[in-house]
Design a protein around this nucleic acid. Structure first.
Lengths: 213, 213
DNA sequence: ATCAAATTAAAACGTAAGTTTGAAACGCTT
DNA sequence: AAGCGTTTCAAACTTACGTTTTAATTTGAT
């Protein structure tokens, strides 16, 4: 058996990830975190230095592998196929997201939700650190989509990618705008595979739709 | 000239709207609000009762007219046309959002951003109050889209509407996922008309795409 | 002009936040 | 077993928060 409870720093990261998603950064206190992680209050500042640094640690633990997975899928696809289909390109992004969502050991869909929270909260972390480290991500996808959709101008392509990644992110994050206005949660009954079944056709259709005269 | 500075309650609402968007509910203190609004600290509790009630006032001031505009557009369209096109349906939602975004007197695009923040922050307000008052909004659009897209099953339609409103909301809110990874802000150079030019075709294409075998 | 109500103002209250401190406990090498 | 760096712990510190209180001031009708 030996469930072997993780060490202090890891327990803090796990609990923080969940609480930051549930309540947001500001509304999550170190006392909430340390209580649920069953560690001493001072442990956060000892292991991470500050609450801000803790957030960065929580965030980076998931982001780096996710980005790496997407780029690996992209590499693999580009060596395998000569001409890339839009659907296969979309899938290189969706598959790692899906794998993450289904893996409880990596927090499941928590990180995608954290990412969307962090995005709308416009954290300093995103504006400064990440945009520098992972700009290659957008560059790679921009080039790949440009090859798959050569008839689109750069502006049109940028917008369509913007919309496509927007709907994909929010689908995995479970941000259901319509659930605001209705209690029925049909859509949000969250089987990740179900999401993909409907998500991919929608996104691909938007990406490949003919340009207007 | 007579710019006639608004009364205390209105100044509090205006400043709060901006600060809640910029920093979120928790990270916005009453002292920040009252300082920038140039009113006394106690004025918030006097006029609104509490910080929570203030948030609700800020939110409702914009939401109710926006919903009403959408439903009015929908009414007008349904009396004018017999068979509704998907594009015209999408436009009944986009046009009020666009008008709001371009009207500084109503806070411009601030409210859409506030709405998206409130959504991912999963406020009690959205779960309890609004879902009851405005469930008619979803019902009306669901029925209208069902008539425009009768070949879609209820589940497929629910998902497509979910995706469609998701991308529309986030487009107006300026939630650009890709800007996380790159400093170039081409897409987010926010001319609302530009958004619509590319947004409508994308959304319509996703909605009307043929169902898979 | 007067008086009551509505509003503004300054100050304080109690609480909870992030952080720091210094000692105790632990783990490991010698 | 002794020593030492690492980790844990309880407690306190400083600061800022939302809210309340009480008095001063303004407003509007008579």
């Amino acid at each position: 058996m030996e469930a072997s409870r993780p060490d202090t720093a890891t327990r803090i990261l796990d609990v923080s990830e969940r609480l930051f998603v549930e309540h947001g950064f500001e509304a999550t206190s170190l006392r909430m975190i340390t209580q649920q992680a069953e560690v001493n209050l001072a442990a956060v500042n000892y292991h991470f230095g500050s609450k801000d640094a803790l957030f960065e640690a929580v965030f980076m633990r998931r982001l780096a592998p996710l980005i790496a997975s997407c780029l690996a899928e992209l590499d693999e696809l580009e060596t395998r196929e000569e001409k890339l289909s839009v659907e296969s390109l979309v899938t290189t992004f969706i598959r790692p997201c899906l794998a993450l969502s289904k893996d409880p050991a990596r927090g499941g869909a928590l990180f995608v939700r954290l990412l969307s929270r962090t995005l709308v909260e416009n954290h300093r972390l995103l504006r400064e650190t990440i945009s520098q480290q992972y700009s290659v991500f957008v560059q790679r996808y921009s080039r790949a989509f440009h090859h798959a959709l050569p008839e689109l101008g750069v502006e049109e392509l940028a917008w369509r990618m913007h919309f496509a990644f927007s709907v994909m992110f929010n689908a995995f994050a479970g941000n259901d705008v319509l659930k605001i206005f209705t209690r029925s949660q049909i859509v949000s009954a969250r089987d990740p595979d179900m999401i993909v079944k409907y998500l991919v056709p929608f996104v691909v259709a938007g990406l490949v739709s003919p340009v207007e005269g």
